[in-house]
Design a protein around this nucleic acid. Structure first.
Length: 941
RNA sequence: GCAUACGUAGCUCAGUUGGUUAGAGCGCAUGAUUCACAUUCAUGAGGUCCCUGGUUCGAAUCCAGGCGUGUGCACCA
């Protein structure tokens, strides 16, 4: 075997290996056989760059894909990107503005702007895709999809038309969320809520006092609304000018001294408010008066309605039907048609009802309106500590305004013709009873606690607003000619006479079909083979945005579920637990990490120490640890491949049971257990647990013990040749087990092992849990394991004493092991003990004599070890050491004694538990008495 | 307000249906270096499993209450 470098250098292998995998064709399931198994890559934004979240997702999905592929499945990991409608258009528009194009939509027009966005995203697409390749993702690039390409457009239009014909899609005027930054409507689920402190103004309106954080909208409000059962007070006071004045406020506000103080202070009219009249809201209803707003003189009248919350503000409000969801509902309900006055336009500018504020932005208008109202004496109070939450556009990061507009919606509550169910019910069924009550068509969510949240979300769902006033996206397949409406996949015949709806569809409308639109639906082929997909993973933040829509479309369109399993992962945070973000300056570029530590190290550090649905921290030390592990695997392999003969005996054919040493049997049994456990963990998505078990086996058992022992047990050429067979066997399995986690290093080693013969590890069969037929032993596994563990205890016990007495490592000493039961065993493996513990002479005796000047320990029942220390023995120290051990053991024994003396325990606990406890007790007692015997001589000192 | 998750060693976290003298990695301490690996090895110190009560023969684990932290939803004149 040729020389291998001392340390694994990822850079020398990764790109080359990836190329080989790609060229092999095994990323493409057409070249694989077996049961189909598909994983759809959650498509990253086409304009995005790889971040840690992608890195985590790629690690997870690729580990799963590789595991399933090795298990003999026909695995399709389908890659793709998302056109991310609003986000992308907003991003490109921002860039264009920076380049001096003030209003890109106006200046460039639809076609040209689309061309620019397309150009930008095509360029960007290759970046993210090549970055995904760096992660080692074993995706089938020949099936690369894009949410905004032709096949996906056909699917989107087809589904839209079908839903329209089923009456599930309708057009209506509604209060919607308007993002001024994105210049588009958003669905409820696209809002982020941000807490802000903004002044809350008490404004007079005639004698009435209303409260608001939006004084700029108080230019054209009417009527004034009070609660019918609310109590209101008319207060008399002396104003700044020293004149008598009146205000009507809710009793609630007046009684809340701290709140009312805001008004008192403002009017500089301390404590001389006198209640002159009291009314209920009903009594006030119908009053009419004229009053000046900051913009114009207006007529007001009073109505009473239960929408008013007496606990809030002043217990009275005026209506802004076009700019508040509650007001809109109220106005609709009460038929207050004259209140639909638009004060803010879709660019976020004040309209011509705003008087002095016409054309101003909301922020400017607010400042100006307050200024004017202050001069007019309309502002009677200002609560500067008011905190409320504002909806923010998740894409453009600007405040979202409630606005009234005509939009397209998906009706989630309408019964689907011929199905007897609503979309809501379909979404519910898929995770509860199974689609159409079929248990085999159930989406299983891991961890299952997210199921509750999902169901609650489904139950509270309102119609989904799917139209967007942007150009970058699937244009709605609807044409208008006067009052006529045409909806179809193909344009109407005399197309030029029709006008197409300029709006596009919500990006989630297309990504919701991702599991089947990517498979050529409705044409078939791949769709038939791979749907429903096997596994999907995503962060909990897009559970509602994406998962729910995939379930909606799958169940409605293709009458099935989109995937059998969905694994929800948490978010990655920095060392301090903060979110990664560019603005916080803590972002980590996965490519930098790969450059420094290698892809395998990055992948393993992302996957270990995490649990589904919970956030995890990511920091350098974690990657360093993973890098060290990668290197350890490299060196284990280097040792085996360079020190032993790869072409010698094989375990499969040349080994017979008698030749196996205890260590051989032990490591093979442990390996067998690890195969079973790791397979089970991966089948149940316990990536972290699987990784930890493998790490522990690889490092603490294989490297630290078995490889060390194999050096000792390979003294003769025959023994060495025998060992080679075992080591090659273990190495091959080890590489396979590690492959899903660390595809590059394992493949690199495998290529060395196979002498670059072109055989790829990535398609080798996953190790089976059955012990190799070559290993036959009369001993049960438990006996092998416990015997080996005794040897380990003897070795570590000696090392401990050596350390405690500060004996130089080079100094060899003699030990005596007193045992009846294990004489043969210890004698047989004396050389291991001597080598690993650096012991020059080892005597085994059956007689319980204690040599003088020695330290003692009991590694297990029936064995006592004496370490001869002659001149270095420190009697006091030795006595103390033994004393401490005995104390520990005594406490342990007595706790077991108590347990076993408990009749209820013996009677009620399962027999196996009682037996285990009894065995523990017996062993501990035996150890204890052995130790006490050793202490006796010391007690004289 | 409602919901949900979390609270275990100095730090980051495991601990799968109740049965361990409660674990790992990192960090720390002591010592080792030609012989696969200092990206290494050996050894060690370090825990009121947030608190209180309950269920049970038995609780880090189940239940109730409390405290603390995070997140989602709701409210949003």
């Amino acid at each position: 075997m040729k020389e291998l470098p001392k340390a694994y250098e990822p850079k020398h292998y990764e790109d080359e290996i990836y190329k080989r995998w790609e060229e092999s064709g095994f990323f493409n399931p057409d070249n694989l056989s077996g049961e189909p198994y598909a994983i759809m890559m959650p498509p990253p934004n086409v304009t995005g760059v790889l971040h840690l979240g992608h890195a985590l997702e790629n690690s997870l999905m690729d580990s799963m894909a590789r595991f399933q592929r090795m298990r003999g499945k026909k695995v399709l990991l389908l890659p793709g990107t998302d056109h991310a409608a609003v986000a992308t258009q907003a991003k490109v528009e921002r860039l264009l503005v920076e380049q001096g194009i003030k209003n890109p939509r106006q200046e460039l027009g639809r076609e040209e702007l689309l061309r620019r966005i397309r150009e930008f995203s095509e360029q960007s697409k290759s970046t993210i895709l090549s970055q995904i390749k760096k992660m080692g993702t074993s995706a089938d690039w020949s099936r690369l999809a894009y949410t905004f390409d032709e096949p996906r457009n056909r699917a989107v239009n087809g589904v839209f038309v079908r839903m329209y014909n089923d009456g599930l899609i309708y057009r209506g005027t509604r209060m919607v969320n308007w993002s001024i930054g994105a210049h588009s409507v958003l669905s409820d689920d696209e809002l982020l809520w941000e807490e802000r402190q903004e002044p809350f103004y008490y404004i007079r309106c005639g004698e009435f006092v209303i409260g608001t954080v939006r004084p700029e909208t108080k230019c054209a409000d009417s009527p004034l609304v009070v609660h019918g059962d609310g109590e209101y007070l008319r207060l008399r006071f002396t104003n700044k000018e020293g004149q008598e004045d009146h205000l009507i406020v809710s009793k609630n506000l007046f009684d809340k001294k701290e709140q009312f103080q805001v008004i008192t202070n403002h009017l500089e009219s301390q404590s001389n408010f006198q209640v002159t009249e009291t009314f209920t809201g009903k009594e006030l209803e119908g009053r009419a008066f004229e009053y000046d707003t900051y913009a114009a003189k207006r007529k007001f009248y009073v109505i009473a309605d239960e929408v008013i919350d007496m606990e809030k503000g002043a217990g009275a409000m005026t209506i802004s039907s076009c700019h508040s969801a509650d007001d809109y509902d109220l106005a609709k309900r009460r038929g207050l048609n004259e209140t639909f006055i638009q004060k803010i336009d879709f660019d976020g500018k004040m309209t011509d009802v705003a008087g002095p504020c016409i054309g101003m932005t909301i922020v400017d208008a607010r400042r100006k309106a307050v200024e004017i109202m202050k001069e007019m004496g309309l502002i009677v109070g200002e609560d500067t500590k008011y905190v409320h939450r504002l909806p923010i556009c998740y894409r453009s990061n600007t405040v979202v305004e409630p606005m009234v507009s005509k939009q397209w919606f998906v009706n989630v509550d309408k019964e689907i013709p011929g199905r007897g169910k609503t979309l809501k019910q379909l979404m519910r069924e898929a995770v509860t009873t199974g689609h159409n009550g079929d248990k085999n068509k159930t989406v299983r969510i891991t961890p299952d606690r997210f199921e509750k949240g999902y169901l609650r979300w489904v139950d509270n769902l309102y119609d989904w607003c799917i139209s967007r006033q942007i150009w970058w996206g699937h244009q709605i397949p609807v044409w208008y000619k006067g009052e006529e409406v045409y909806v179809g996949i193909e344009p109407p015949k005399d197309e030029e006479k029709w006008e197409r709806d300029p709006d596009t569809l919500d990006t989630w409308f297309s990504s919701g079909m991702w599991t089947f639109s990517t498979l050529g639906w409705p044409e078939g082929g791949d769709f038939k083979t791979f749907h429903p997909t096997g596994w999907m993973q995503m962060g909990y933040e897009i559970l509602f945005l994406w998962m729910s829509r995939m379930i909606l479309f799958s169940t409605y369109v293709i009458d099935g579920i989109p995937f059998r399993d969905v694994y929800i992962h948490g978010m990655l945070r920095d060392e301090m637990g903060k979110k990664f973000s560019k603005s916080a300056g803590n972002s980590v570029d996965p490519l930098d990490v790969i450059e420094e530590f290698g892809t395998d190290a990055l992948r393993f550090s992302l996957i270990s120490g995490i649990s589904p649905g919970n956030d995890a921290r990511f920091y350098d030390e974690k990657v360093e640890g993973a890098r060290n592990l990668v290197n350890k695997i490299w060196n284990i392999s280097r040792f085996i491949l360079t020190q032993f003969d790869p072409d010698g005996l094989t375990l499969e054919t040349d080994h017979t049971s008698q030749e196996y040493t205890l260590a051989d049997q032990w490591i093979l049994m442990r390996l067998n257990q690890i195969i079973i456990e790791v397979t089970d963990d991966l089948e149940n998505f316990r990536f972290s647990a699987a990784g930890e078990k493998l790490r522990d086996f690889t490092w603490s058992e294989l490297a630290d013990w078995y490889l060390e022992i194999s050096k000792i047990e390979s003294a003769s050429p025959a023994d060495k040749s025998f060992k080679s067979g075992i080591l090659m066997y273990i190495l091959e399995i080890l590489l396979k087990l590690w492959h899903p986690f660390m595809p590059f290093v394992t493949e690199a080693i495998y290529q060395q092992r196979m002498r670059n013969s072109g055989i790829l590890l990535m398609v080798q069969p996953w190790p089976s849990s059955v012990l190799h037929a070559g290993l036959r032993t009369d001993k049960p596994a438990s006996e092998v394991l416990s015997e080996f563990s005794l040897l380990q205890s003897i070795v570590t016990g000696i090392r401990t004493i050596r350390n405690e007495y500060g004996i130089e490592p080079k100094k060899e000493f003699s030990i005596i092991i007193q045992t009846e039961k294990y004489q043969v065993l210890i004698d047989q493996y004396a050389s291991i003990i001597k080598n690993l513990a650096k012991v020059s002479s080892l005597t085994i005796t059956g007689t319980p004599d204690q040599p003088k000047q020695s330290a003692t320990f009991v590694p297990g029942e029936g064995v006592t070890v004496f370490v001869e220390l002659s001149d270095v023995i420190d009697v006091a120290k030795e006595r103390e050491r033994l004393e401490k051990e005995i104390q520990n053991l005594t406490a342990y024994v007595s706790s077991l004694e108590k347990k076993l003396a408990n009749k209820q325990f013996v009677a009620q606990a399962p027999a196996s538990v009682v037996a285990t406890e009894r065995a523990k007790y017996e062993e501990a007692t035996a150890k204890l008495s052995a130790l006490e015997q050793q202490r006796a001589p010391f007690s004289h000192f």
